[in-house]
């Protein structure tokens, strides 16, 4: 966190325009408009069922994987709508990586293979290049020192916090420009949580992070911007420092002070 006033013009990486989403007849999001800045951490907060997870799943086209789910609107990444006809969801998800609530290393795969799998699927076969990218990803995920001597062990043999960092390394391996995280620390104890939070702060130098959290203090500690959702609507999008000291909207104030 910096106390300095940023005078540099921030670059928008993702522009969400008039986004609405449904699960069959039930509307989960309505008319969301939001600019996500490059190399910033944006936290999505709000009560259960407000559409936080649906929102980030719309950012990498995971929403459409649910039966009966559909959406309207645009998600423009670097000038191109990810929902344009002909866009490849697999390529989009490679560029917009995702880490889930519960760490999910691929069962039966070694630590090395968990990280290398995305690279292999994208056509990289050269061993030296794979080694280099695996090491770099594990270093960026602050896991290298702990696992470098037993890369052939199963990913699932790691602790919960290590598994989550392994999943982050896996997503980083394919050089995404955005990293989505859906409650990445809710299944972790405080020390692992602190590791992940520190990691998010470091990661923003290379990727833009959007994460969902129920933990208000975590949002305050880690993010640069806050998007507060309620009943499928975006109530407030603000700088984190302002949101937690002088929120613009009374509903935001009620939510963060627990007077809901």
């Amino acid at each position: 966190m910096s106390f300095k006033k940023g005078k540099m013009k921030q670059k928008t990486l993702i522009e969400v325009k008039a986004l609405s989403a449904w699960f069959k007849k039930s509307q989960a999001l309505s008319n969301i408009n939001l600019l996500i800045e490059k190399n910033k951490v944006t936290a999505i907060i709000g009560p259960s069922g407000c559409g936080k997870s649906t929102f980030i799943r719309c950012l990498n086209r995971l929403h459409e994987e649910v039966e009966g789910a559909y959406l309207k609107g645009e998600v423009i990444l670097e000038g191109k709508n990810i929902y344009d006809l002909g866009s490849d969801p697999v390529l989009i998800r490679r560029n917009i990586g995702m880490v889930f609530q519960k760490p999910n290393p691929f069962p039966g795969m070694s630590i090395y293979d968990n990280v290398a799998i995305g690279l292999k699927l994208s056509g990289i076969k050269k061993r030296s290049l794979l080694d280099e990218r695996v090491e770099r990803s594990l270093r960026n995920a602050a896991l290298w020192k702990e696992v470098k001597d037993h890369l052939s062990r199963s990913g699932q043999s790691l602790s919960g916090g290590q598994q989550q960092r392994l999943c982050i390394a896996r997503a980083l391996a394919v050089n995404p420009s955005v990293m989505l995280m859906d409650e990445p620390t809710s299944a972790l104890e405080p020390i692992s949580t602190a590791w992940i939070e520190e990691l998010i702060q470091k990661l923003k130098n290379q990727v833009t992070v959007v994460f969902v959290t129920h933990n208000m203090q975590q949002a305050a500690r880690v993010s640069d911007r806050i998007a507060f959702f309620l009943n499928g609507e975006l109530v407030e999008f603000n700088k984190t420092s302002w949101f937690f000291t002088k929120p613009k909207h009374s509903k935001s104030e009620d939510y963060i002070t627990g007077r809901f």
Binding site: M216, A220, F244, T245, K246, P247, I256, T257
Partner: peptide, 9 residues
């Protein structure tokens, strides 16, 4: 309590 917003002020 880690107060925020008006509670903190």
């Amino acid at each position: 309590q880690s107060p925020v917003a008006k509670d903190l002020r």
